[in-house]
């Protein structure tokens, strides 16, 4: 049988204006170490721009279209289209080392 709520409602009315203390439910965040941004290029002309696909949701086709745009509109920019190895959550140290050595700039296509 369901209980009659009248008495409990009266009790609640008395306590409505009272202030109480409760505990915070959030966890403890780690410290964030800020990374500096790479210096920007004065011009892209004559520079090598890597277009990196992370293998998610047809991002490769989008980046290839972007590469076509560079060919048509910025012919002095050298573009290199690459697919990173593994799924998007995995590192690709070989590719990122290559980019450090050979690229002036990177466009990373994140498929989300």
């Amino acid at each position: 049988m369901r209980k009659n709520g009248v008495n409990r409602n009266q009790e609640a009315a008395v306590g409505r204006s009272e202030k109480i203390v409760v505990m915070n439910p959030m966890g403890y965040p780690p410290t964030i170490k800020q990374l500096g941004m790479a210096p920007r290029l004065d011009s892209l002309d004559g520079k090598t721009v890597y277009l990196v696909d992370v293998r998610f949701d047809d991002g490769d086709i989008l980046l290839q279209q972007m590469e076509n745009w560079f060919t048509e509109h910025k012919p002095k920019v050298k573009t290199v289209f690459v697919r990173k190895s593994g799924v998007y959550t995995q590192d690709d140290t070989t590719l990122f080392q290559e980019i450090k050595e050979k690229a002036d700039a990177v466009i990373l296509g994140v498929g989300h």
């Binding site: 409505r16 202030k19 109480i20 505990m23 915070n24 780690p30 410290t31 800020q34």
Partner: peptide, 16 residues
Amino acid sequence: ISFDRSTPRFVDSDTE
């Protein structure tokens, strides 16, 4: 920029 990332143990007192 500063990252304000602390979590207090309690919430400021108030009504329910």
